[in-house]
């Protein structure tokens, strides 16, 4: 995938991410996705959270993921939020249930939107959109 200079990327980049959540974004940048996992009860936390929804422990480890899951739901966007996204239309947004048991949402890569089905297996790939920011996307397995 093509990387562009920071200044010329016109889609939305993450803003206001607290330092406590940066390990997630750094893991994407390293192409080694990691998600908080509760040190006390093992529950995964995504999006990152201060406290575990199961046991309220504030302690967690950034745990690696299989990167595999199945589509829980999806949509195909045909009206973009801004001009920068309009050139991609139509594009898909997928919510997948990861093999570890929680959901993650992302766009897709190298996947025909007409082939999308709930229940379809997907895996994570990385998209280095700028020198500082990497996103993940879902593609078919």
């Amino acid at each position: 995938m093509t990387t562009v200079e920071e200044g010329s990327y016109e889609k939305f980049l993450p803003e206001g991410i607290p330092s406590s959540q940066m390990p997630f974004w750094e893991s994407l940048r390293a192409h080694d996705i990691r998600v908080q996992r509760c040190d006390r009860c093992g529950t995964y936390r995504y999006h990152p959270k201060d406290a575990c929804p199961s046991c309220q422990s504030r302690k967690a480890t950034w745990a690696p993921l299989s990167g595999r899951g199945t589509i829980y739901t999806y949509t195909v966007v045909r009206r973009a939020p801004s001009a920068a996204y309009a050139s991609d239309l139509p594009y898909a947004l997928v919510h997948a249930t990861m093999d570890e048991g929680f959901r993650m949402a992302a766009g897709v890569a190298e996947l025909n939107i007409n082939d999308l089905r709930i229940g379809m297996p997907v895996r994570i790939v990385y998209d280095d959109v700028t020198p500082n920011w990497t996103l993940f996307r879902f593609t078919s397995t």
């Binding site: 939305f12 993450p14 803003e15």
Partner: peptide
């Protein structure tokens, strides 16, 4: 939020 809007959610 940023974990989703980066992908062009509406």
């Amino acid at each position: 939020g940023p974990y989703e809007y980066v992908y062009g959610t509406t």
